[in-house]
Structure formats: C-alpha cells, structure tokens
Design a protein around this nucleic acid. Sequence first.
DNA 1: CTGAAAGCGCTTACAG
DNA 2: CTGAAAGCGCTTACAG
Lengths: 335, 335
Amino acid sequence: MTEQLTLADVAARAGVSRATASLVLRGTGRVSSKTRDRVLATMREMGYVYNRGAATLRTQRTSVVGVVVTHIANPYFGEVLGGLDAELKRAGFATLLADTGDDVDEQRRALQTMREQRVDGLALIPATGTPAALLDEFAEWSLPHVLVSRYLDDGNSSYVGADDVLGGRLAAEHLLEHGCRTIHYLGGIEGILSRRDRIRGVGAAMAEAGLPASALTRSVWEVSGQGGLAGGRALLDGESLPDGVICHSDSIAMGLYRALYDAGAADVLRVIGYDDVAAAALWEPPLTSIATHGGSLGAAAGRLLVERIGQPRGQVVVQRAAPELVVRRSCGCHS
Amino acid sequence: MTEQLTLADVAARAGVSRATASLVLRGTGRVSSKTRDRVLATMREMGYVYNRGAATLRTQRTSVVGVVVTHIANPYFGEVLGGLDAELKRAGFATLLADTGDDVDEQRRALQTMREQRVDGLALIPATGTPAALLDEFAEWSLPHVLVSRYLDDGNSSYVGADDVLGGRLAAEHLLEHGCRTIHYLGGIEGILSRRDRIRGVGAAMAEAGLPASALTRSVWEVSGQGGLAGGRALLDGESLPDGVICHSDSIAMGLYRALYDAGAADVLRVIGYDDVAAAALWEPPLTSIATHGGSLGAAAGRLLVERIGQPRGQVVVQRAAPELVVRRSCGCHS
DNA sequence: CTGAAAGCGCTTACAG
DNA sequence: CTGAAAGCGCTTACAG
C-alpha cells in the first residue's frame, strides 16, 4: 500500500526490461533460466508483491470468484462454503463473499458489487423468491455461474445440490420399515423446490407401500431451531400425532425435540433430521438424519465453476449428489 | 466481461468528456444537475457497470477488505463472520474471504493473496501458533488490521474479543453458588490465550471462595463435539468426578453430554458451555452457557477496522466485550 | 532470448 | 462548470 514497488523497479535492479520481468513472474517460458533466477532473487530481496489488480486491467481476468450465500451463520452453509473456498483456492481463485440474509434486494446489491469487481465467476445460493429470470441476466453479462444447494429451474444454469427426491424417499422408507403408517413433513419454507422434491420422494415411497395420500401431512416453519420448536408445539397441540416425522433440517429436529422434552414426551415420535450436521451425532437421542455432505457438495460446486470459467460455452451440468441415510437412534433404532 | 462498456462510451453518448462522466459517477460536486441527470440516465440506459478495478489502479483503494478465519464451518465463527460482513458492506467494502483451517502455512498463503489483491484492510482470526511477529509485518506493509476473537499480544494491534477472564469468572461463580467445591475446565487447545484467561477467571473466583488451587483441574481437548466426547469419557474413567464442569465451547459440552448419556449418567454433573450457539437452548438439558454474542462482536470488529482504514495512524484499540451468563438447566437450575 | 511501445479503464490536477 | 492530458502497474504482440 505504501511502498508500491513495481515490476519496473525489480527489472531495473535486475538489469532486464519490464517485459522480461513480467515473463519471469508469470512463468511463461521464453526466458533463460539464468535470467529467471536472477529476477526471482531480486524480487524476493526487494520484497516485491505482485499487483493483481493492475494485471487485471490488462488481462480482463481478476482471479476472483464471487460467492453469494443466504446465511453464513447457518452451519450447513458454512460447510458448503468451506468446501467451495478450498476448491477455488486450489485453482488459484480468491473468494469474494456476500451474505444476503436470504433477501432478494440485498442479493441484487451483492450481485452489483460482484459485477463492479469483475469477478471471473459466481457461485450462488439463491435467496428465497429469486426469479428465474435473474439467470438470464447472468447469461447477458456472460458471467459463468453455478447454482448451489437451491435450484432455479431456468433449464440453462449449472447446478450442484443434493438429490432431494431421493433424500425424502430414503427417510420415508426407513420410517415405513419401522411400521409407521402416518408421516408428517415438518418445516421448510413454502414453495421452495427442495421441500417440494423431498415431499415428493416421501409421497412416492408411501404410495408404493400402499398408504393413502392422506397419510402424509406437512407444515411450514422457518428453517431454524425456533421454527422446529414452534412446529413441535403445534404438532403436540394437534388432535393426533403422526407415527413418524421427517424434518426439513437438523435444526428443526432439535427444536422439535425441545418441544417434546418440554412436554415430557421425548420418545413418543420417530424422528429423522436432514443435513447431518456435526451436532446430530451428539444429540440425545442421537439423530438419524439424511446426510447431504455440505463440504463435498461445496467442493463439487467449486470444481464445476472453475471448469465453466475455463470453458464458458461448455455444457450445462446439473449434478444431484445422492444423500445417505445415517441411522442413529431418533428413528427408534437401537444401536 | 464481454461488452466492456466504458465511461468513454457513456460520455460520448451523453455528449460530455470522460472527466465529467467520472465526476458524475463519483458524485463529486462541480457538475450541473442537468448534466448529471443526463449522464446518469445515459449510464442506466446503456447498462454501464463501474469498473472498480480500473479505478483502483488510479486511486490505490480497492474497497475490498480481507477476512481471514480459522474455520468457516464453525457456527460461532459463522456468526462473527456474518456481523463482520454486514458492517463492512454498510461502509462500502466488499469482503475477500479466506479459510485457513487453523493452519499457519495456509494462513501465510492467504495473507499473500490479500496483499496481491491490495485489500484496504484486514480482519484476522489468527491461526493457532501464529507468531506475534506476524503483526510487525502488517505494520511494515502499513496494512490496517484488527484481530478478532483471538489475541496476539504484540501491544500494537487493535483487537476485538470477549473478556475471557470475566467469562471464566461468571461461570465459576455460578457453579460456586450451586455449592460446587471442585471444578474441571474441559477442552480447548493448549496455550491459547482465551483458555488461559478463562481458567484464570475461574481460578480467581474459586480462590475468593476459599477453595485451594487443587480444586480446579483441567484437560486439553480439540474444540469440537468429538473433542468433548473424548474428554467426557476420560472424565468418567477418572477416579473421581468434579462437582462442576466448565467447557471451552458449547460443542465440547455437547460431546461431554454424549459421553454422559452413553454412560447413563446425564445428570451426574453440573455443566456450563461457552459461546451460547443457537443449539444450546434446544439441548437436553438446555445448556447454561456463557454468551459471547459472535454477531455483535463481528460487527464491532468491522466498525473498528473501517475506522482504522480511515485513520491508519489512529489509536490502537483493545475492546473486550463483557460476556453474559445465560442460565438454563445444565448447571442444575430448574426453570 | 530480450526490449520498446501501446493500451487496459479509470481519476485528477490543471487550464479555460 | 467542463475538457485535454497524464498516469496508475501491469501484459502482450511485435521487432530484433
């Protein structure tokens, strides 16, 4: 920031032209190894720091990727973000982060910043209520991007997420094996695709087991411990309890258990959570959950994005990772 | 990325010079409002996007701030990061993120990236084992920075964190009120300042209560659920149990409870956690914890950093936010 | 294998 | 109140 040592300074000291110094810096062949070593040594000795921004002006590449998330503090998204960041770093990109708080206007502002900073690509967990038309704008800007975790169906964007239909099915099938005849799907925001898909998977498994559609009930709650708590209380206040509950997230499952404990009825329900966050295994009872492996999902998104930055005209890829049922005890299994 | 519409294009269309267009863009007075409106309208109409990188080359300011953390997926750091990001955004800075995985070498690389990107300032949660000498380098680079959550005592850096001595004291005093005569401090990494400070606070409170130094024991475990689980098992395997346990984090407390439940001894100990993460209130028993309010801590760090960027020669500020004891039931209180 | 020169898109004194 | 010109620190054909 102060010194502003430039390549010209290094070149002068090393007795070469700026062009040669630049060639050495970028490792682009065509320089004798003797010269290279001398220049490199000079750089180190002078404490030269590459000015990436200046290079950007010339090359039109920033080596920065935008990552726009809905809620950093959410442990699951934290895992996704960790995997994403690691993979981007490996490919030589820095991560420009923005948290939208799941607000569409805030997201608009974040995207504007990303454009002004000329990010080379964008990983986006779209905020609830994002119009699919937003993606057309990306195409217009020719901004390579990949959707993560939440899908917007414009048929034109790459996406990495979990196979939610399968996740719902796995949870339901396990509950059915336990003999459940009625299942409640607890929580999640109205209208989001992941919830619809999971419920579809649950419904399919139940239909195959010969259960009527009425055997599957559902309710909408904020995706958080508080949402689960409120949902759990509502469930307990209802006229009849379902045999099993599939929660939209582990945090909802934890809130549900809080309600159950408060009512002195912790073992009255078979419960399955979703995401398999770190605390799930520690919970009492240990939470049976659908693992979606946020870290590797983020890493996959990172790899895909890097690929798209390399070939902007490449194929649209929609990747749905198979989730896994992790059986512990909240479903009624004993280990 | 493609179009590359420049200010010159806008100026030509609006019939003014590039200089005037630039003045309009930056809102730096000296332009008739008629001209301003015309230029602004032209920008909108043409879909012009400011190229911040180009401006940076001239102004030497990037409007980007580096945030280097040890572990994004940690829910507590996620909260800190959220508060930090919100505050930086408010001041017009974008956040360049790097996760070090608490590794010193990775941290070195992250800092190099931050320098190459010419960030205007830096918020750092230092990795375990970071030499205090690192901070001298920052001064050398004249890079405004603030340490967050973990202190390095170089007497020359601004810092925002929780008052750990007080936190330890609050936890101990509450346990003492419950009649505890022996206390174990569970987990945390050997040698880190926060652990030392908390233990000091615990020790002081116990001494004031007339207890001998031997009444306070401690053990070192990784700060995670797995660390807590291992620590809990070790505790149970020991010859005698303490009356109360103060955990270095809520995750450790959760791991401890897993060990207790597995041993069928969930209520044999009075337990206090640390951080008061969202799941603490849902836990069974609801976790009494020391709240450090990660979000507002992050926000405070953001404000301080913005201030330092504005006045690099300003005072060094060390801010220790007072933590609060949140009483729930794991300590033995009944609500 | 190396050097001279133009140019990336802005901002900022300096004239007028 | 507005315009012409220099310059921020790089990279990249193009000569030699």
